[in-house]
Design a protein around this nucleic acid. Structure first.
Lengths: 211, 211
DNA sequence: CCGTTCAGGTAACAGTTGTTCACTGACTAC
DNA sequence: GTAGTCAGTGAACAACTGTTACCTGAACGG
């Protein structure tokens, strides 16, 4: 295993964390592309050159942040998929889990939402690739569901992509709600209703497809 | 009226256009926050100081681009709302119109998609405000539809917000499809199916709401 | 204990940035 | 025809950028 609890390694990890955190807090109201290497090191309380001991450049720092943010998101997705219960109860669980994620790691979520279509190609593509993986996982889970009996694979993937995108818009809604103040429950209600609408569409999909 | 066809005004408008176009083409693979004033003037073939004759700063240039981009989008939305025909035929019209918009003004659409959650607060909020207006318009149109009989206003707005967001994800899908190559028709199919799924959910919404 | 490794710091570099000032000269209003 | 307006220019500024080569000293392996 890679325990690596040397004193030196501890220091190393600490400043690496400081760099990531500094970048993350700076990214609250800025975009990655407009973030300078020196700004990050200054906010982290480290000399500019120390940056290169950890990252090749800002793109590298960006992809590291993607990995980190998607790790927590992956955990959330896994929880969602393994959540048992009736299909419409599962919607409640999804919205609640996304809300928890936004509460626990707002900076990570904001980073993902912002850089998904952002100006740094490497980061953008890293996020897109991982979201494709998520969509596939969700699609696989959906395929096992009795509600999807008789669905073509193309139909399943279009649904899972819709769900992934809806996850992102829900997260974004939670973020703006959290910094605008008190309409958190309204955002929850909206997301729940939209998810339920999609669910209803799913239930009656096969029946209405003929027409 | 403000005809203003003086020779001086013509020159003025020309360099203003050059500045906007230069910024727009530079924004194909970058974000507004990372775009420098001098880069724009250099790409426009103008001295840096000329910039200030037209904009107070980059934020101002950004909001001007928002206005321009949303003007074309507003036209599309209006066409969508006034489109007659059966409800599911209207879905085809929506996807086609968005496709046309992406084909005609890819830079504007990309700018909107990128800066919607981007790093420049002024631009972000300008876009959000206009999207709220669009959602209200769509909501009003939906309210007149016989399919929405018995719907609460909150339910109508959650649907219109879902539709606006889906418009954006469709536009984004078209954009990535257009620069990745040939899966344009696949993107069309996905967007259409998703819209139809939402439509099916809408039709059976009232009936399933009780449970 | 001693030589090595290596995270971090210092100093300097060439380039770029936003912004100001005074200036030109083609257009305009009278 | 002439005086004035004003879009665009040129030069200069302090501040900042990413990146380099070299140095320092504490933790490390043996």
């Amino acid at each position: 295993m890679s325990a690596e609890t040397g004193l030196r390694e501890i220091r190393r990890r600490r400043t690496r964390r400081a760099l990531l955190d500094a970048a993350l807090s700076e990214l609250a109201e800025r975009s990655l592309g407009s973030l300078g290497l020196r700004e990050v090191t200054r906010a982290a309380g480290v000399a500019p050159t120390a940056f290169y001991r950890h990252f090749r450049g800002m793109d590298d720092l960006g992809t590291a942040l993607v990995e980190e943010a998607l790790a927590s998101l992956h955990g959330t997705v896994r929880e969602i998929l393994t959540a048992t219960g009736e299909a419409d109860r599962r919607g409640d669980a999804v919205v609640r889990l996304i809300g928890d994620l936004v509460r626990d790691r707002p900076a990570h979520v904001r980073f993902l939402v912002r850089e998904r279509h952002g100006g740094v190609p490497a980061v953008r593509e890293a996020i897109a690739a991982q979201l494709d993986v998520f969509a596939d996982e969700i699609g696989a889970a959906l395929g096992c569901d009795p509600l999807s009996a008789g669905w073509e694979t193309g139909e399943v993937t279009m649904l899972s992509r819709l769900l992934v995108d809806h996850m992102f818009m829900t997260a974004s809604a939670f973020l703006t709600a959290s910094l605008r103040g008190e309409d958190w429950s309204a955002a929850t209600g909206t997301a729940l209703a939209q998810l339920r609408l999609i669910h209803v569409g799913r239930v009656h999909w096969a029946g209405d497809r003929a027409r």
